[in-house]
Design a protein around this nucleic acid. Structure first.
Lengths: 148, 148
DNA sequence: TTAACATCCTGTAGCAGGTACAGAGTCAAG
DNA sequence: CTTGACTCTGTACCTGCTACAGGATGTTAA
C-alpha cells in the first residue's frame, strides 16, 4: 500500500524528479517518510498525481491545475467555477489553433516562392524573409507556446 | 548610417535586450564599438535582424534560423536544403495543429460532463479528471509548446 | 558649468515545466 | 562485506527572451 517514489513514478508514467517538483510546487502534499527518510505515498497521493497528469495531458498550466485541485479539496455546492475555468482553457486552445493555422498559411505561401530548387543565390524564400513586408509582428509578443 | 542599439531596436520592433541576446547567441555578429564602447550597427545588421525577426514571427526556433542564416551567408547552387528546412517546419506546425484539435475535442467532451453547474460534490468533470481512462499520456513527453 | 535625464554597458536572475546531473545516504541480495 | 539499485538534497540546464542592478556615457537645459 505504501509506495516509494520510484513505484509511484512508474504507476503514473512520469519521472521521479517530476513528482518531487510537484511537491515543491505545492501540488502534491508532503509525503510521510520512512526511517531512512524515503518518501512514502498512499492511494490518495496516487490519485492526486493521476489528476495532475491528466490535466497536464490536457495542456493546462500548473496554476489552472492548482485551481482545480482547490475545488477538488473543498467541493462547492455548484461547479460553475470549474466550468468557467474549463471554458477559458478551451478558449486558449481554440485561439492557439487559429494562430497556428494563420502561421501555416504564411509558411506555405513562403514555401511556394521556391518550388524549383534551382534558384540558388536568388532563392525567393531567403529574399522574402529579409523583407519586412507581410509581417506585422503578428506572432511576436503574443503569449502562446511554439510548435516545437 | 550608424545606428545605436536603441535605434536598431526601434527600427526592428524588438527590445534592446533581445538584440544583445541574439549577439550572444551568435545570430548577429559582434558590432563595431564607438569611443564610449557603444555598439554601432550598419545596414547589414539591420537587414539580418529583420530576417531573424521575420523567421521568429513564423515561429521558427533559433536553431532553424541559424541554419537559414548559414544558407544566406554562403548561398548554395540550389536551395533544396532551404526548402527541406521549411517543409520540416511546416510539418511541425501542422502536427501541432492536429494535436491541439484532438485536445480541443477532449476538453469539450470533458466540459460536456457538467452542463448543469448544479452537480457540486459530484461534479463529473473533477471525477473524470481523477481517472486514468481516456488519456494515454498522449500529450506528455511530446515536444510541442503549450497554448498559453 | 553643472545638474538632470536618457541611453548605453555588463552581468545576473527570472519565467514554465520540467529534465539531468552530482555527491551522498539507504537498503536488499549474494 | 560488497555490489547494485534505489533514494535523498541541491543545483544547473533547456527555450527565447525579459527585467532588473549598478555603473558609465552622452545630451540637453538652467
Amino acid at each position: 500500500m505504501e509506495l516509494k517514489i520510484g513505484e509511484l513514478a512508474k504507476r503514473s508514467g512520469c519521472l521521479v524528479e517530476t513528482i518531487r517538483f510537484y511537491e515543491k510546487e505545492g501540488l502534491l502534499p508532503h509525503a510521510a517518510r520512512s526511517q531512512g527518510n524515503f518518501r512514502l505515498y498512499g492511494e490518495e497521493h496516487s490519485e492526486r498525481l493521476q489528476f495532475i497528469r491528466h490535466c497536464r495531458s490536457l495542456d493546462m498550466t500548473l496554476d489552472e491545475i492548482r485551481d482545480l485541485l482547490k475545488f477538488r479539496d473543498v467541493p462547492q455546492d455548484n461547479c460553475s467555477e470549474v466550468n468557467l475555468l474549463l471554458d477559458k482553457h478551451i478558449g486558449h486552445v481554440a485561439d492557439r489553433i487559429t494562430e497556428l493555422k494563420a502561421l501555416e498559411k504564411q509558411l506555405k505561401n513562403l514555401r511556394g516562392l521556391c518550388q524549383t530548387s534551382e534558384a540558388g543565390k536568388d532563392c525567393g524564400i531567403l529574399q522574402n524573409l529579409a523583407t519586412t513586408e507581410g509581417f506585422e509582428a503578428t506572432n511576436l509578443g503574443s503569449h502562446g507556446g511554439g510548435c516545437h
